[in-house]
Simulated assay, not measured.
Amino acid sequence: MARVYNFSAGPSALPEAVLQRARDELLDWRSTGMSIMEMSHRGKDFVAVAEKSEADLRELLAIPANYKVLFLQGGATGQFAAVPMNLLRGKTKACYVNTGLWSEKAIGEAKLFCSPDIAASSKESGFTIIPSRSDWRIDPDAAYLHYTANETIGGVEFQDIPDSAGLPLVCDMSSNILSRPLDVGRFGLIYAGAQKNMGPAGITVVIVREDLVGQALPGTPSIFDYKKQADNGSMLNTPPTYVWYLLGLVLEWLKEQGGLAAIEARNIRKAEKLYATIDASRYYSNPIEPDCRSRMNVPFRLANADLEKVFLAEARTAGLVNLEGHRSVGGFRASIYNAMPEEGVDALIEFMGEFERKHG
C-alpha cells in the first residue's frame, strides 16, 4: 500500500508510527484479549491511559499545577459557547480579536450569552494581517480577552502571545497547539480540537486556570460546566475512549521526537522553505503579511486560476492530496502540521516547480 502526503486541514494526517502502533494494538491491547475501544472507561486499564495522556500533555506544555486539564467533546465550536458560559462570572461583556472565520464564529456564539466587544479586527484587510497592538481597544470591565492563535482558513498566525491588559486571556489554539513551546501561565484558558496536531476528530482539550472554574452561568448544561467535568475526571458522560487513546499515542510520539522545541524547529524549516518557493515565483502567490504567516496552513494561488483543477489532478497523481483551499476562499492550502514530514513538503515544492515549468 502506498501512503500519500496528506495536506488536509483537518481531520489531518497522523504520524505513521502512531497509526502502525494503533493497528498493532487494535485487537489485543496489552494482552487483555480485547481492543481498548471495547473497554469500560471507568476500568483501571483505560483510567491509566487517560491519566498518562494528561501527564504527558502537562509535561510537553509545562502546564502549571494550578491549571485543570479537561478532555471534552464538541470541538472548538462547543467551546465557543462553553467559554462565555463559564468565564463571564457575573459580567456582561467579553473582548474578542477578529482575525478570520473562526474568530467570527466564536464571536457569533458569544452573542448568545453576552455582548462581545471587538477589541481589534483585520476584516477590512481581508484577514491578511494581525491588527497592530497599538490599535487594540481592551475594555477593562470585560470578563476576558479571546483570540484565535491560528486561522486555519486564512493562514494567519500569532507569532507571540498578546498582552491582555490584565484580563484573563482565552485562546482557540485548535490548529497550532503543540507546534511550539508555550507559556501556559500567561493564559486563563486554552482550548483546542484534537484533529490538527493532537489526534483524530472527536476530542477537545481545555486547559483552564483553577480560579476561573466554578462560576458557570445558571442553566449551563452539565456537559459544558468545567467544574463538573473536572470533578468527574472528564468522564461526566462516556468519553470517546479510542480517540483519547490515540491522542495519548500522539503525545508519546511528540516526546520521542524531542518535545516541542524540536517540533518547532522542524515546523519552521517546513514553512520557510514552502513560503520561499512561493515568494521566489511569479506563478504562485500568498496574500498574508510575512510577519503573521501561519506555519501550519499555507494558502496560495496560481497566476492562472483556470488551471486550478489541473493542478489538483496532477498533484493527486503525484501522491499529494487535499490541497484544495477552503470553499469560502478558494485557491489552494497546504496544511503542514506536526505529522507532515519534511519529505512531504519537499515533494510539494518539487511538484510546484515542475507544474510551473510545464504550465507557466
Results as ranks from 00 to 15, higher is better:
Leu307Lys: 15
Glu308Ser: 15
Ala17Asp: 09
Gly78Gln: 05
Ser125Ile: 04
Phe224Lys: 12
Asp139Asn: 13
Thr220Ala: 01
Pro239Glu: 00
Ser174Met: 04
Arg186Gly: 03
Arg357His: 09
Arg42Val: 13
Ala303Arg: 15
Ala315Trp: 01
Pro84Ala: 11
Thr220Trp: 00
Ala313Thr: 12
Lys196Arg: 11
Ala347Tyr: 00
Asp172Ser: 08
Ser134Val: 12
Gly319Val: 07
Val310Ala: 11
Gln159Ser: 10
Ser35Ile: 07
Tyr5His: 14
Arg301Leu: 06
Leu249Asn: 05
Gly108Phe: 02
Ser164Arg: 09
Glu342Cys: 11
Val97Arg: 03
Asp306Gly: 13
Ile118Tyr: 02
Lys123Tyr: 01
Pro140Tyr: 01
Lys196Pro: 00
Arg209Val: 05
Asn322Ser: 10
Ile263Pro: 08
Pro11Val: 02
Thr92Leu: 05
Gly100Ser: 04
Ala2Gly: 08
Leu274Tyr: 01
Ile223Asn: 01
Leu72Ala: 06
Ala192Lys: 02
Thr77His: 11
His146Val: 13
Ile138Asp: 01
Val69Met: 01
Val170Gly: 01
Leu57Pro: 05
Arg180His: 08
Gly219Lys: 10
Ser35Gln: 08
Ala280Glu: 13
Asp117Phe: 12
Pro162Arg: 11
Lys228Asn: 07
Asn232Glu: 07
Gly219Arg: 10
Ser285Phe: 00
Ser31His: 13
Tyr147Leu: 00
Asp45His: 15
Leu87Glu: 04
Val213Ser: 02
Ser121Asn: 07
Ser53Arg: 12
Ala120Val: 07
Asp291Pro: 15
Glu289Leu: 14
Thr148Trp: 01
Leu274Gln: 07
Ile177Met: 03
Asn6Tyr: 03
Ala261Glu: 15
Asp135Ala: 12
Asp117Trp: 14
Ala82Pro: 02
Met173Leu: 08
Thr77Met: 06
Tyr283Glu: 10
Phe187His: 09
Val156Trp: 00
Arg42Asn: 11
Arg42Glu: 10
Asn6Leu: 01
Ser222Lys: 13
Leu167Ala: 01
Val213Trp: 00
Tyr226Val: 05
Ala82Ser: 11
Ala9Val: 15
Ser234His: 06
Pro162Gln: 07
Cys114Ala: 06
Ala276Leu: 07
His359Gly: 04
Leu189Thr: 14
Phe311Thr: 15
Glu157Ile: 05
Ser134Pro: 00
Glu342Gln: 14
Arg180Cys: 04
Lys91His: 04
Ser222Ile: 15
Met198Val: 09
Ile130Lys: 07
Asn297Thr: 15
Ser234Asn: 08
Ala216His: 04
Leu101Tyr: 12
Gln79Pro: 02
Leu19Trp: 06
Ile288His: 09
Val243Trp: 01
Ala106Glu: 02
Met34Cys: 10
